[in-house]
Design a protein around this nucleic acid. Structure first.
Lengths: 239, 239
DNA sequence: CGTCGGGTTGAGTCCATTCAACTTCGGTGG
DNA sequence: CCACCGAAGTTGAATGGACTCAACCCGACG
């Protein structure tokens, strides 16, 4: 059940059997959410953190004027609100973009891990640090990349992350969003999102049909995006 | 010497004397950097983390086309690359925007803290989580706020953070950047940065002369920015 | 006194937005 | 069975925002 989490953590460093079983004991009840439901709502102070077992979810924030911005996309194996364990109050909501299966980890048990298992604590900490590294890349994309490059970058990142948790098929992956939702990732209007997508299609680097992204020319896509996966820390090292 | 760090950490939760002295023992040599120098260079694998004691610094990333984006601004008391302790390889550089005084914390000693002091570990972890929360707000600003609102937001954030470490004077604070550097924060051209700044001045909410920001009407600035400081976790709570 | 970095201004172009219309497709009820 | 409906995608036209390029101002400094 926790395979995807194990895959993610063990990409960064060795994960011992005792650590795996401690994690398993920390994870409590399982739950399912329908597409469009909030996994966690804005401003809440949950007593547990949510581990995404399957599906796609997004962190979002609404502004006064009603516009919405996604600040992160989450996939299987992501601890979508591990940070709430210490932040206490969640400053954003988390939305299921597809049907989602999740498991809940009690904050008290997470705290217990920090008391007795320093190495596992560091791995969980690292998990939130990679999250931050992804945020930084998004900032770079929004500030200085062209919209086409930003989109290409997003596809590179998602493909790389999904591959870690074995959710790719060849050079394709499932991406069950609408163009309007993607627009809220890139900070675009839906109309322009549509045009940027057409421009990516015309480039021949990738395509997106029936909720599936097909990468037609990886090198071209990486080149368009100026993509460098270093920030994902995908190498095993003592932490 | 570590006053600013203590001020920041104790904003989130009580910081005991023994924790303070452990931190003090962790911090090694002090160093000074001139404006324009790199505190840490991109792609490096430092064996220590850098605590900013005084001055302004920025994390930056260059793209292939030569454009630059700042992904964070750092002030006194910020552990500018605490995350490098676990990420190992730094995916970005850190630049001194003013003369900077820093202190270095050996990674081995930080690791030692995680082995013996769970509560302090959580506070340091939290420090990096607040960092992430700030990133998220920047993403929202870049994606969905108007440029004027984005600038107003930045001033609100900086004022709030600087107040914690007692670097404000009344409703003013020192901000030793050029407009070109601010443009690299907001993701704008220098020309447009200049025009947005004029627009902010005309609004009467704030002004920026001789490297000093004067907040003339806090409520109006907050309103322009749609600013809510929750994400900075500025309340003391058991963590 | 000349130079240089930083700030400011104007003009022209291109990018992204809004608004509105139209298509396609799957679902649903008469 | 098919007519209708709504959600998602696509297109066109007009507006306004942001960029580039270029010029110019100004104060600090050698």
């Amino acid at each position: 059940m926790l395979e995807a989490l194990y895959l993610q953590l063990s990409t960064h460093d060795d994960l011992s059997d005792s650590e795996r079983s401690l994690l398993a004991k920390t994870i409590g009840s399982q739950r399912e959410f329908a597409e469009g439901e909030d996994l966690v709502s804005e401003g809440s102070q949950p007593a547990f953190s949510t581990l995404l077992l399957d599906g796609f979810a997004a962190r979002y924030k609404y502004l006064e004027n009603g516009s919405r911005q996604f600040t992160a996309l989450h996939i299987a194996g992501d601890f979508v609100d591990l940070h709430a364990f210490l932040l206490k109050t969640l400053d954003h909501g988390i939305l299921a973009l597809s049907p989602c299966k999740v498991a809940l980890a009690d904050h008290a048990k997470l705290k217990h891990i920090t008391e007795i298992e320093a190495h596992l604590t560091r791995l969980l900490w690292l998990d939130t640090l990679v999250d931050g590294a992804i945020h930084r890349e998004w900032i770079v994309s929004m500030g200085r990349r062209s919209k086409l490059a930003h989109l290409a970058y997003l596809f590179c990142e998602l493909f790389t992350r999904l591959k870690v948790v074995q959710r790719t098929e060849g050079m394709s992956f499932h991406l069950p969003l609408t163009q309007a939702e993607l627009a809220d990732v890139l900070g675009l209007s839906t109309v322009h999102m549509n045009r940027v997508m057409q421009s990516l299609r015309r480039s021949g680097a990738a395509d997106w049909v029936q909720h599936t992204v097909h990468i037609l020319d990886w090198n071209k896509l990486v080149d368009l995006a100026d993509f460098d996966p270093t920030y994902l820390s995908l190498f095993r090292e003592a932490r």
